[in-house]
Amino acid sequence: MTPVPRTICIAQFRPDKSDPGSALRRAGATIERALDRDPNTRLIVFPETALTGYFLEGGVYEEARTAPEWFQALDGEHGRRGLPPVDVAAGFYERHERKFSNSAIYARLGEGGGIVHVHRKVFLPTYGLFQEARFVSPGAGVAAFDTRLGRTAMLVCEDAFHSVTGALAALDGAQLLLVLCASPARGARSPDGPENLATWDVIGSRLAAEHGIFVILAQLAGFEGGKGFPGGSTAYDPAGQRIASGPLWDQALVPVTINPGDVSRVRGQAPHLADLEQAWRRLMANSPGAADR
């Protein structure tokens, strides 16, 4: 049977810092707009910390909620608007087991809904303008999970700078990788916009092509204390080709159509993942850099 193309919507979003009620209402309105625009939308992807704002410092301890609390709040917004069931991925600061994390929730809203998966950011940038490890704890690992769009995995921003995370997601069966980002704009020499987006373009394309997976990069928008989040969300097909681009600086809904059949087609032509599956244990056992750790 021919796989049916599926529609994802990247919600390039500006958070409402320290106003979770407004953030939730706006997130609900965004979900409604995405479904109005295309009722076939299966998944809406918000960026890292979309529900709280990124630079909170000690405010993390006040703004963090448990994943079930965020789910109930989002599901309540969704229900209040009478919307059809839809999957949502969103970044937030999480309180769990007496710890705090920079997390991503994947949930199904509406009838039969619930939390499908929570990924806790593994690599916490604590250098330059970043101070994450001072305020949150690192996640333990990367795992894929089953969704209506196929097997999926999530990373949060810096996680994707370490190519091993994409490999782990793919080895666990992910065919769709959601990367929720909050990347402050830096570098003003390019006519195409802030230079950090060029870095993300390379990372997104490379992750997709190496493992033969779809990659969604959902970028935050807005300014926080002078630091600009430039938007510019993107998506890549399993060959590494960019298939969607969001505008710079503004909030936006960026539709992405994925054809699951592309995964097997590309992997048939370039079986990098199959080769990695065969070699992984041997590599880990015989590579001193891995085995000694």
Partner: peptide, 8 residues
């Protein structure tokens, strides 16, 4: 778009 691995 400029292709450079890590602008940081």
């Amino acid at each position: 778009m400029t292709q450079r691995f890590d602008s940081r």
